[in-house]
Simulated assay, not measured.
Amino acid sequence: MQRILIPTDFSENAWNALTYAMQLFCNKQCTFYLLNTYTPIIPSSRFMAKMVDGERIVDAVRDSSELGLQKTVERIQKQFNNPYHQFETISSFNLLSEEVKEIVDTFNIDLVITGTKGASGIEEVFMGSNTVRIIKSVKKCPILAIPRHFNFISPTEIAFATDFNRFYTTSELAPLLEMARMFQATIRIVHVQYTIKALSELQQFNLNMLRRYLKDVEHYIHTVSELHSVSKTLEIFSKELDIHLLAMLNYQHSQMEKMTREPIVKKTAFHTQIPLLVIPEIGMEGTTTKAKTREHSFPSS
């Protein structure tokens, strides 16, 4: 059973991410953890304190959060009514990125799915500040970010952006391979170069290993020239090849890591309108450690 965390603020943007998740995993047994966080502003001045009780503000906001989650579950069950899906709700007085990180650890989450609003005032920018903070803080499971206006399409064409400078482990590639097998998808490995040149010895080795991992999945290698920026190049590549999902590995000095630095996100304006799968740097022991944790937490009967 998949354990999937979906933060929601009850907006249409968040609902769009929820409906995408329901359709993506319609044939999978899943437990969905729906999270809403709240941080009410409690008046501190003497004048305001006489008029409003701080504790009552927190209680009211918490009640509103819990009611919103209950209504969201009812709406999902009414629209999809999927016997494969179970729901747990979590209402928390905490910062979103901190709570997501804690829940991933506590419940051994397999995937975080979040909607993206984009920067304020620039609707077409792909990643908003909450999404960026989640990507930067969550290091133990992949994150799937859904653009605000994206309607579900079975991801039969998946792009995996890489520069071949890093060795990939089986545990890191597992989310990409699982997605490809679920939808019998083609994986298009895209390598963006400022100037087209032959791969180095290290890059060639990493490419060969990558192809070994993907041997059971239809895949192609695409080397493309950079246009203005890597982000813009990936956007154009995705449009031209009708890509349904873009996957990137997030590690130190990677393109994904550069894009999640706040100032650079604003300058780069990643305009892609397709879902983005961000895979964390798990390392060689990732799969083994997770398996042991699960065995300890949920012993077989």
Rank of each mutant, 00 (worst) to 15 (best):
N206E: 08
V192H: 10
C30F: 00
N208F: 08
K267R: 14
Q86R: 13
L207F: 13
L277G: 00
I243F: 01
I42H: 09
V100S: 02
T106R: 08
K28D: 15
M127C: 10
D105T: 05
K28R: 09
S154Q: 12
L277R: 12
Y213I: 07
L207C: 07
P43H: 10
K290V: 06
Q86V: 04
S120T: 14
F10H: 11
H271A: 12
Q204I: 06
I153H: 07
N36F: 04
T293A: 12
S254V: 07
L144Q: 02
S120R: 07
A247R: 01
M48V: 06
T8N: 00
E102T: 03
A119E: 07
E240K: 15
F164P: 06
K50H: 13
T114R: 00
R56T: 06
D53L: 08
D59Y: 04
I4L: 09
T186V: 12
N81C: 06
L96K: 05
S92A: 15
I236K: 13
S11Y: 13
P280K: 02
K197P: 04
T223Q: 14
D59V: 03
D163F: 06
A180S: 04
T288Q: 14
A247V: 11
L95K: 09
E12C: 07
L69T: 01
S300F: 11
Q255N: 12
V278A: 03
F205A: 12
E201L: 14
I282P: 01
D242N: 15
A180E: 02
M209V: 11
T260M: 13
S44Q: 13
T19Q: 15
P40S: 13
N208D: 15
S120F: 11
I57N: 02
N208L: 11
T31P: 02
D110N: 10
T223N: 11
H228L: 08
A14F: 00
Q255E: 13
R3E: 09
S44T: 14
Q204Y: 12
K266F: 13
K78D: 05
L277A: 12
T116Q: 05
S65F: 02
F183L: 06
I134P: 01
T260C: 09
V138Y: 07
K197L: 11
E201Y: 08
F164W: 08
E157S: 14
E178G: 13
Q29V: 09
S64P: 00
T72R: 03
A174K: 14
V278P: 01
V100Y: 02
R148K: 05
L227K: 11
T89A: 00
P299S: 07
R3P: 05
L241S: 10
L96W: 03
S44I: 07
Q2N: 11
D53R: 09
I187Q: 11
T116A: 05
G115I: 02
L210M: 15
I146L: 01
L34F: 14
T19V: 09
D242L: 10
S254L: 09
I221E: 14
S11C: 11
K258T: 11
H149C: 02
M209Y: 10
R211V: 04
